[in-house]
């Protein structure tokens, strides 16, 4: 089993290299640093000197892969690839366009992101699974049909509507919580409660329906019939037998997103003014700060791969078939 995890970890390395190469190609090969400088400076101020200055300030004035002018290992180290891309492997993300350390920003912004994302995730999981179990318990009845219809309706509504509508009703009409903002510590409760509720409602439709499908698939299996033939009550069949087996497909979708919670949510954070990584990313996109976007892409895929490995480990906990192989 340890060999299995080590193998998965080793497998992550080429993936990360691939991600790195891909983002490097996207950011430096599709468009040259000159193009970027031109766009950032705007048509009016473009002069060759201005472009050079822009590049120099940001460290883009080096060759892409191989620096013929340098000596020894610097041939490869004094290049854009080495300094901007390869350095990310040691989590050195460099500086944003406004000169701040990206690594530091990430470290300070993870907290607010988690304060929204983690409760949303946990509350959401409980709500979705309970709703799905309820529908499964009353399957093929009018209650189930109504539940599914509600799910389809909820998942047809744009996520933006939940945020805008929620802000309007709860904050503007009822004045229950501030529209946006954030403060650290216990005082942040009034700021985070609405984003969390909206985050949960936002995906109640699709998630509950997905869980319901999983439960229904399990409930059609032979071992469930065996459990009923033992004289177990329907609730007990559902909780002891079905839920335990359904954990396997559920984990596939759930565990992989846990590390990504650190990244926060783009929409929620920007609407509610949460100083997390999500709003950081959006600001960077709007300001066309490529260093930050590149850092977030790399961080995102790193966390995703961590999620994949966690998924594999969690399988070994719930599924004896994986554990014993």
């Amino acid at each position: 089993m340890i060999a299995y995890i080590i193998r998965r970890l080793l497998y992550a390395v080429p993936i990360l290299i691939g991600v790195n190469l891909l983002t490097f190609a996207l950011f430096f090969v599709v468009n040259t640093p000159d193009d970027m400088a031109r766009m950032q400076l705007g048509i009016k101020r473009v002069t060759p000197e201005a472009i050079e200055k822009w590049k120099q300030q940001r460290g883009y004035d080096k060759p892409l892969f191989r620096n013929g002018a340098a000596n020894g290992t610097d041939k490869f180290r004094d290049t854009i690839f080495w300094q901007k891309s390869a350095s990310m492997f040691v989590l050195d993300f460099g500086y944003s366009d406004d000169g701040r350390s990206i690594g530091h920003e990430i470290a300070t912004r993870m907290g607010p992101s988690l304060a929204i994302a983690l409760p949303t995730f946990l509350v959401g999981l409980v709500v979705y699974v309970s709703f799905a179990l309820l529908m499964t318990l009353f399957r093929a009845t009018a209650l189930d049909m109504a539940g599914v219809a509600l799910c389809v309706l909820l998942m047809s509504v744009s996520g933006l509507f939940y945020i805008i509508g929620g802000q309007f009703v709860v904050s503007k009409l009822w004045h229950l919580v501030p529209i946006s903002g954030y403060s650290g510590g216990i005082g942040s409760f009034k700021f985070v409660v609405l984003p969390i509720v909206i985050g949960v409602i936002g995906s109640v439709g699709s998630s509950s329906r997905w869980y319901r499908t999983i439960f229904l698939e399990e409930i059609g299996k032979d071992y469930v019939r065996t459990a009923r033939a033992k004289g177990l009550s329907e609730l007990r069949v559902l909780f002891r037998h079905v839920l335990k087996n359904a954990m396997i497909p559920i984990l596939t979708g759930v565990v992989v997103v846990i590390p990504l919670l650190f990244m926060g949510s783009l929409l929620t954070e920007s609407f509610f003014g949460i100083p997390g990584l999500g709003s950081y990313t959006i600001d960077a996109i709007n300001a066309q700060d490529f260093s930050v976007v590149r850092a977030m892409v790399f961080l995102g895929s790193l966390l995703y791969i961590v999620g994949l490995i966690l998924t594999d480990i969690s399988y070994t906990m719930v599924d004896p078939r994986v554990r014993l192989q």
Partner: peptide
Amino acid sequence: AAMIFQEPGLSLNPVM
């Protein structure tokens, strides 16, 4: 009254 089924492989709960 107890019952046993055709496919013993599928009729037992795999995670218990």
